[in-house]
């Protein structure tokens, strides 16, 4: 699990980094950690983690294990394990998550849908709620 604070630390671990000056178009798929600081249009999928930077703009559905979102996302977000939504995040789309944290100031405009995470505790397995509030 990672957070906004250790972004630089994660930089070295990321298999893919898309810088702020880069525009990506198409279906972007990876197996390692992905950092997006620029623009992406299409889809974004990885078996590992995704970090969306503060100035990033993503017009795509996102699928990852863990995801940290600080920028703008127009599309659905699916974080199988953990999703962290930072204070500067703007998400326009539905969110599927195992666990979630949303910082004050974040904008989420879509449904929050918890997916079954832990069979023992059942945590997150029955929560379906709509949240169009601006936090």
């Amino acid at each position: 699990m990672f957070s906004k604070e250790n972004k630089l630390e994660k930089f070295k671990d990321a298999e893919t980094i898309i810088g702020a000056s880069i525009k990506v178009k198409g279906n972007f798929q990876g197996q390692g950690n992905i950092i997006i600081e620029g623009t992406l249009e299409g889809s974004l999928k990885t078996d590992a983690n995704v970090f969306i930077g503060e100035k990033a703009r993503v017009v795509a559905n996102i699928e990852a294990r863990d995801a940290v979102i600080n920028g703008e996302v127009q599309g659905n977000v699916k974080a199988k394990n953990y999703l962290a939504v930072g204070e500067s995040a703007k998400i326009f789309g539905d969110i599927h998550y195992g666990e979630i944290s949303i910082e004050k100031g974040a904008v989420v405009n879509g449904q929050l849908l918890a997916t079954a995470l832990d069979k023992k505790t059942g945590r997150g397995s029955s929560t379906d709620r709509e949240d169009e509030a601006e936090k």
Partner: peptide, 10 residues
């Protein structure tokens, strides 16, 4: 690259 492209203006 594969199914996507990168554009660089800077």
């Amino acid at each position: 690259i594969d199914n996507y492209s990168l554009e660089i203006a800077e």
